[in-house]
Design a binder for these strands. Structure first.
Length: 257
DNA sequence: TAGGACAGTATGGGGACCTA
DNA sequence: TAGGTCCCCATACTGTCCTA
């Protein structure tokens, strides 16, 4: 998908990109081979060739951060097949107050099949989150661009998020799926343990307070709830990528998985 | 529990720019 | 020069949090 992308070139939008695909320009290599292209002047073609060569070099270096800058946020989903294997799925729980007055209680991190839960008062710190982010090529959240990331950055000053961010909430809206994460999970038959089905964000706050009152079982349930939220982002991202590539990708592209 | 506030993204309209 | 497309800005939309 990434090497079929042209909308990162200045002056090329979705319409021109689609016209290129329909005229057989399916990827960067074909674009570079053709001396002339309909709708693109020779002087512009020279500039685009330079930009595409630079993009190819960055891709060869596996530099996801380069594409975070040159692609519009709404197109970061295109990076999923290339950088998805090194994606970091993230979901946080909080004390329920605003970022100014509240605290992050748990941070769920799922990467390369490994679930890690950072707990406030134990191993949760800015440096650990930063380390996890720095080791990933793509950040995947649900509504994280509005809630999780600004909340983390408010609580942990100086936290940098320089990798591309595939926010599944807005991707879901683009393919016609409304509602919160749990609602969408039910729509798509994405499973979670039965004792976690009735939990929501407010219940998570209550569990945290129960834990602080000495109830260890409450922490266990909270950790499992957060892990379910975090892990379930992976099948949702797969499903949304397929839908987005069908709707917005080149006609020749066969969706993965 | 319900309505308002907030924040980030999506969308639509109009002006600017580019190609043929 | 006309038509098509892009870009920018304002507005709408949505999920979550806050407050009464």
């Amino acid at each position: 998908m990434l090497t079929s992308t042209f909308v990162h070139l200045k002056g090329i939008g979705p319409s021109t990109e689609r016209r290129l695909w329909e005229s057989g320009i399916a990827d960067w290599a074909t674009f570079l081979r053709e001396p002339n292209l309909p709708g693109i002047s020779p002087s512009r073609k020279v500039l685009y060739d330079v930009d595409l060569a630079a993009a190819q070099e960055q891709l060869d270096r596996r530099n996801a951060r380069y594409f975070a800058d040159c692609l519009h946020t709404r197109d970061h989903w295109r990076l999923f097949p290339t950088f998805g294997p090194r994606a970091l799925y993230l979901d946080i729980e909080t004390t329920g107050l605003s970022a100014r007055d509240g605290q992050v209680t748990l941070v769920g991190l799922y990467r390369q099949g490994r679930m890690r839960t950072l707990i406030n008062g134990d191993d949760l710190s800015r440096d650990v989150i930063q380390e996890e982010l720095d080791q990933a090529d793509l950040l995947i959240t649900f509504f994280g661009s509005v809630f999780d990331i600004p909340y983390l950055q408010a609580c942990f000053k100086g936290l940098r998020v320089s990798i591309p961010h595939f926010d599944l909430c807005f991707a879901a809206r683009r393919v016609g799926l409304q509602g919160g994460l749990k609602h969408i999970e039910r729509e798509l038959d994405i499973a979670r343990d039965s004792d976690l089905l009735t939990l929501d964000g407010m219940e998570a706050v209550r569990l945290w307070h129960q834990y602080h009152a000495g109830d260890e079982a409450a922490l266990d349930q909270l950790v499992r709830y957060n892990a379910a939220d975090t892990r379930n982002l992976e099948p949702l991202a797969d499903w949304l990528y397929d839908r987005l590539s069908l709707r917005y990708g080149p006609p020749s592209l066969t969706p993965a998985g």
